[in-house]
């Protein structure tokens, strides 16, 4: 199995190598920061014409995870759309695909800072969602427990004996879990950034995405800059 299973706040959860979170007991799949419609939004605002295929790519990967897990409930943990205009401007093919994915499933859109209002698509729109021992919201809040959030697009730079490897990653300690961004056009914030460093206790773990979900102690140390390539 390429995924990583663990217990968090009494819930048995699985981090999938794709960056989705699977709660088998509830048949629930959670993904965060899809940023659908990002290329459209950039062009609308007078920016460059990025390849307009990221919405389809993100939805295709989500469809594959839904197929594999047969999830009955889906939580999109905020910033599902790059802005509300992008949600409205989704091409017909993307709307149809979302509708197909929603068929036979409970679907929750949690509001994020990019998509703070309801969108004209099926599913329930919520600011946050408590479920059993867990609380799903977009941005982590201090002092929370059992909190599952997104927003920061965490990634990890891991020094191995031969090279430094960078991967999007789940970050967690006993109180909170932050999901990596699931959208195709998303960058990341390094786990050693002071912002993320401050959110987690000393025993925090990182679960790297990739071919296999891998757990390591969360790389810390706020004195190091991110070694990322960036563009776009």
């Amino acid at each position: 199995m390429n995924s990583h299973s663990f217990t968090f706040s009494g819930a048995a959860l699985t981090a999938l190598p794709s960056g989705a979170l699977w709660w088998a007991q509830r048949g629930l799949l959670c993904v965060s920061d899809l940023h659908l419609g990002k290329s459209e939004r950039i062009a609308r605002r007078g920016g460059t014409h990025l390849p307009p295929y990221e919405t389809q790519d993100t939805l295709d990967r989500l469809a594959a995870d839904l197929d594999a897990t047969s999830a009955k409930t889906v939580i999109c943990l905020g910033d599902s759309f790059d802005d509300l205009g992008a949600a409205e401007a989704l091409p017909e093919s993307a709307r149809l695909q979302i509708t197909r994915l929603q068929a036979g499933r409970r679907w929750y859109w949690i509001e994020g800072n990019h998509d703070p209002g309801p969108v004209a698509l099926g599913g329930a729109h919520l600011a946050e969602l408590p479920l059993g021992p867990l609380l799903f919201r977009h941005i982590a809040e201090p002092g929370s427990q059992g909190e599952i959030s997104g927003h920061y697009h965490p990634k990890v730079h891991l020094r191995t004996r031969a090279k430094t490897v960078t991967r999007p990653a789940f970050l967690m300690d006993r109180d909170r879990l932050i999901l990596p961004a699931y959208g195709t056009y998303t960058g990341g914030l390094a786990s050693h950034d002071p912002v993320l460093d401050a959110l987690f206790g000393p025993d925090a773990l990182a679960i790297l995405t990739g071919r296999q979900a891998l757990a390591v102690a969360m790389p810390r140390g706020s004195s190091r800059p991110a070694a990322s390539k960036s563009g776009a």
């Binding site: 390849p51 961004a181 998303t186 960058g187 390094a190 990322s228 390539k229 563009g231 776009a232």
Partner: peptide, 10 residues
């Protein structure tokens, strides 16, 4: 940094 992403993705 989370606003930018690698050109490799493009």
């Amino acid at each position: 940094r989370q606003a930018t992403f690698s050109s490799d993705i493009l």
